[in-house]
Amino acid sequence: MTDLFNFPSIHNFPPFYTLQTQPTTRQTQIALWSEIILAYFMHHKLYRLELSESLNGELFDNKGIKRRLKLGTLQCIIDAMVKQGTAEWDLQSKKNVALIYWRKPEEWATIINNWVFNSGMTNSILTVYEIAHGDITEGLDFHGLDQTILLKSLDILVKRGLAQLFQGTSTEDMGVKFFGTNG
């Protein structure tokens, strides 16, 4: 978490922080920003972007050249990412919180299912908390996965007929039974 993320040189280019008006330039600009956001989130294993707060962070606030992305511009970028399927708005947040999919829920579903199959936990029941934060997943890619994304991925497995969900007292207590077929 403490290791530094290497920003591309365009991150130090002042016009990169002004939403460009020329269509092709703007398209490229937005694509580059999405690429940087995804790489940054993957690097630091982040899942949730709180827009107005993040504007003060190193990702969008470049103190070296004294340029900071505007909220409107960032929303534009996220909108484009949502269209691409690499992000999703938290609908209650009124465009202030977005989930960033450096891996899409489908991909997470496959990764989790493969892990269950490979670690011989077929037909055993795990809680949602165990999958995301338990000792058994320590060091794995999906360890620390955002709960919303995890539930989306599990839903996908349920729909594929590879898992079954059991209601618990809370979301974290929710149980999952994997049927162990390699998806």
């Binding site: 591309p8 365009i10 280019f13 016009p15 990169f16 330039t25 600009q29 580059l32 940087i36 790489a39």
Partner: peptide, 15 residues
């Protein structure tokens, strides 16, 4: 301020 358009041709070569 107007700059040479570095954005439009930028490719991020990641290691």
């Amino acid at each position: 301020r107007f700059y040479d358009n570095l954005i439009i041709n930028f490719r991020w070569e990641r290691n």
